[in-house]
């Protein structure tokens, strides 16, 4: 009980978002209808954004919502609605699938534990910590000076992806017109 009393308000909010994120993630893999999975995943993205806001990374939080929850998940929903996947998926009755996923899950857990045991986390000194680290001005300065080359390369990658999408979406001669 003493421990519970000592938790600050911010930490309560953090635990709330963390629990929401984990339950959303569990809902994604456990729910039987694809539509419910997608909605659970959206809840996870939202709680992650909440955690970003707690870290004072407002830009990251809102971009996470715009890109993942706002664009990508809408497309997911869109495709699921078009295909109208109403029948329940039965991956859990497929034995080899269950074995494979258990093994890969355990491997991942092992790896994470190994990495975290070896990892050295910088102790944070409150005196040197700047609360503006996550603000958009800082982020922009860093992206356009120190990380200029990777940033530009990523934009080239996006351009390639856009061209690819247009090429795939283009009607071929003699193709169906509708």
């Amino acid at each position: 009980m003493e421990i519970l009393k000592n938790i600050a308000m911010v930490e309560w909010v953090y635990y709330f978002f963390a629990a929401l994120a984990i339950s959303g993630a569990l809902g994604t893999i456990l729910s039987k209808k694809p539509m419910h999975s997608v909605i659970a995943l959206i809840i996870t993205f939202f709680s992650l954004s909440g955690i970003y806001v707690l870290l004072n990374a407002q830009f990251l939080a809102v971009v996470n919502i715009i890109v993942y929850a706002g664009a990508i998940m809408v497309l997911f929903l869109f495709v699921i609605m078009f295909l109208n996947l109403r029948q329940e998926s039965n991956e859990l009755s497929n034995t080899s699938m269950v074995v494979a996923s258990t093994v890969s899950g355990l491997l991942l857990a092992l790896m994470l534990v190994a990495v975290f045991r070896k990892a050295y986390i910088d102790p944070i000194s409150p005196a040197l910590f700047s609360s503006e680290t996550g603000m958009i001005e800082r982020l922009g300065n860093l992206l356009y000076t120190h990380y200029m080359l990777p940033f530009e390369l990523v934009s080239v990658l996006f351009l390639v992806a856009i061209s690819g999408a247009i090429l795939i979406g283009k009607r071929e001669k003699g193709g169906r017109h509708f």
Binding site: Q58, F59, V62, A69, G70, A71, V74, L77, M81, M135
Partner: peptide, 24 residues
């Protein structure tokens, strides 16, 4: 907030879900 207009944009992007989920 210092992301003001992006907040609006994010919320607008979320607005689709009401219609999508209700319609489905």
């Amino acid at each position: 907030v210092n992301i003001g207009i992006l907040w609006v944009f994010g919320v607008v992007a979320m607005g689709v879900y009401g219609m999508l989920i209700g319609g489905w």
